[in-house]
Structure formats: C-alpha cells, structure tokens
C-alpha cells in the first residue's frame, strides 16, 4: 500500500518547476564512469593476489586450496575454531565441491526451511557458519551472498565463527560487476549481503574492536575450481 504519494510528489514537482510529477524514466547519460577502470584486465590469478593481500586489512584469515585439498583445509579450519556445532546452507555447490558428505558427517546442521525458527535457534548457538560466496570482490575482499529459503540471512551473522568458501571462478574485480549481475536478475533476492571480514566497531575511542554483533572471526577459503 502506498499512502500520501500524490501530494508529496506534487510538492517536489512544483519545487523543480514542473506542473505535474514526471512519470517518464529519465535517461542516465553519465559523463564519468571511473569504476570500470578499476582492476580492468586483471587476470584471475591477479585478482586472487589482490584479494589475499587485502585480507590482512580486514582481520580475515585466508587459505588457498585446490578442490582436492578442500576437504582437508576445511577440516583444519573447523579445528582452528575448535569444531563444535556447525551450520551450513543448502547449496548444490557443496556437493559439486565434494564436501557435502564431509560436512554432513560433522556435528552439523543444514539450513532447512521446513524447520522454521529452529534454524535461527541453531544458528544462534552454532560455533561455525559455513557458506559459499556467490560473487567475490577482489578489490575489497568481499563475499556476496543472496538469501533464499535454503540460505537464511542469519546463517552468516549469528555464529561466532564464519567460514566462506570462495570458488576462484566467483572472483570479479569489484562491486561494479556484482551490481551489473544483480541488475540482470529477473528477481532480486530479498537480502543481498556484501560481507567484508568479521563484524567490528571503532565506536570506543576509535579503537577497533572485532566481533561486535556478527561473527568474531572470519576465514576465507579460496578454491581453485577452474
């Protein structure tokens, strides 16, 4: 439901010197588009390098592995965070990366829309959340997650430790490419999160504190999948 729109838009139109509000989409003829120049032409390996380098600035541990060593890398990652309850999304890529059965064999829970609020309860007490990045931004070392029934929004927020698996093929130069991707979707997910490292705050004397509301620790595992 939309309320009070007509009068509100009329006021704006009048201020802008129009007799009635404009209902035609304006042309966007930008003179400057500097965002397309950033990391233009960088190779896949260069993007990985940039991403890895930036992880040091965002308090994020980063590992690189191949599909063959992914399981072992993940096992070590779980151990680093002292194992415990794991929660992960329902995502066909776990199977494609051949780690689905390994994760299922741990003390783990797969996000399950038929279980309703129980998902949130488990996420809240889980020690580790595991997700796979949909698009990864090299420039800022950012993962992008689109929410769905199979991957709730809180899955990557509530657990104290967060592990993001980054298929090398998901890495793009920057947010520009992610924005273009999202614009092409016929339906945008109800929540698209761009996540760059663990939650933090500098609100107390400008001292950086890591782990305020969301995850306290974050790890990226880049998988050479191509």
């Amino acid at each position: 439901m939309i309320k009070n729109r007509e009068a509100f838009l009329q006021t704006i139109a009048t201020q802008l010197g129009r007799s009635t509000p404009s209902l035609t989409k304006p042309e966007r003829n930008w003179k400057h588009l500097p965002q397309h120049e950033v990391l233009k032409g960088a190779s896949a390996d260069e993007l990985v390098e940039i991403l890895v380098e930036h992880c040091a600035n965002i308090h994020t541990t980063v590992k690189i592995c191949t599909q063959l060593t992914l399981k072992q890398t993940l096992e070590e990652a779980f151990a680093t965070y002292n194992n415990g309850q794991i929660i992960y999304s329902e995502d066909a890529r776990f199977e494609q990366l051949q780690i689905e059965s390994f994760i299922a064999a741990q003390q783990s829970f797969k996000w399950d829309p038929t279980q309703g609020d129980m998902n949130i309860e488990i996420a809240e007490r889980a020690n580790i959340g595991v997700v796979i990045s949909d698009i990864t931004l090299a420039e800022s070392a950012t993962i992008m997650l689109q929410s769905s029934a199979q991957r709730g929004r809180t899955l990557s927020f509530l657990p104290e430790n967060s592990i993001a698996i980054i298929p090398k093929s998901s890495i793009v130069p920057r947010m520009t490419q992610a924005a273009q991707f999202l614009r092409k979707q016929s339906h945008v997910a109800s929540c698209v999160s761009f996540i760059t490292g663990p939650s933090n705050s500098a609100d107390i004397e400008m001292n950086l504190v890591v782990g305020v509301h969301g995850p306290v620790r974050m790890m990226y595992i880049i998988v050479e999948d191509v």
């Binding site: 929410s147 929004r153 109800s190 929540c191 760059t196």
Partner: peptide
C-alpha cells in the same frame, strides 16, 4: 567497503525463515 553492505528488497519470500 565496510564489513556489511546489505541490500534489502521487500518482505521475506515463501519458505524464508528469517527476514
């Protein structure tokens, strides 16, 4: 980028647990 840039569109969708 800050740690969280979140883009919210509408209400939760069918079968969504949160949102």
């Amino acid at each position: 980028l800050t740690s969280y840039i979140t883009v919210l569109t509408g209400i939760q969708e069918e079968l969504d647990v949160d949102g």
